[in-house]
Amino acid sequence: MTGILRHRLFWPSAALVLLIVVNSVARPKFLTTTMRDGQLYGALVDVLRGSAPLMLVALGMTIVIATRGIDLSVGAIMAVSGAVALTIIDGSGDPENVGTVLVAVLVAVLVALVLGVWNGFLVSVLGIQPIIATLVLMLAGRGVALLITGGFITTVNSAPFAYIASGYLTLLPFAFFVSVAAIVAIALVERRTALGVLTEAVGVNPEASRLAGVRRRGIVWGAYVVSGVLAGLAGVIYASNIKAADANAAGLFIELYAILAVVLGGTSLNGGKFSIAGTVIGVLIIQTLESTILFLGVPSAESPVFFAFVVVAVVVIQSPRVRGALRSLTASRRRDVAEPTTAEVAP
């Protein structure tokens, strides 16, 4: 029993389950999933679909945080990649062509990769503090995106492009499969190769890792590249969802939600040990919460407050201090039992 309680994913999972229970009581339809034309619809399906961009960004953020870094530029990278994709499709003259869309997506992700390489270069080669290094792109990126779209919100009508966010692959939304693919790929690469352990070693103790012969530069650089690519993909999904490239709104504040998801999942901002499963749960908590707020009809002005309350509660429960206090509460009870014996022994 205590073994389960101590597991690092216990509290995040409990929070998610609690949220789902509250939801299903408040709105019985929450758990109802209907099948139409061989496709599933319902609130849960919406959570899975809607969480895709945050999921991708948060996965990248997990790896970056594990190296003791942080990537504030992911939102800006989303804006850039959306702008690149839409500009290509818009300028191609044949927006309905699947080939055009594929090229657009590929180029957008490549641009995001280059931006990730830039971040990684600043951090791992020039040794600039991650928060400063990625702040550069966070501020400049949206300007770049505006430049690409010529200062306008580029919109397109392209069925293949819209499919990315809204389409279904058999039973479930295509975007859901994209997140699952990303989760599986990251988990496999980190845990089936030695990359995960080396990343954690670099995050826990960079100097000890260097002395042990770990190629720290490559590992840190790679983390920012992965984060950039995943943010690029997220940008494409976001743009596909609104069928437009909105340089100012795309991925706004997503870096903060991603950091929150990572922390909710039990990965320390100090770097080191990380948990992909934890991040996945963290993202689902945030997305379920947003869905709840929407459904409960919390006035939009008050919704951030509501959101804040729930997040504070989850974070407080998870904090080592609160957990320690809970533990010492049980420990002191044990001490009280022991005390009479002491009295007998003492002269």
């Binding site: 030695a194 990359l195 352990v197 080396l198 890792s209 042990a212 012969g213 770990v214 190629r215 590992i219």
Partner: peptide, 13 residues
């Protein structure tokens, strides 16, 4: 750690 680092990240022991 050191042995793994020497082999490289992609060749896990």
């Amino acid at each position: 750690l050191a042995l793994q680092a020497q082999r490289g990240a992609l060749r896990p022991i």
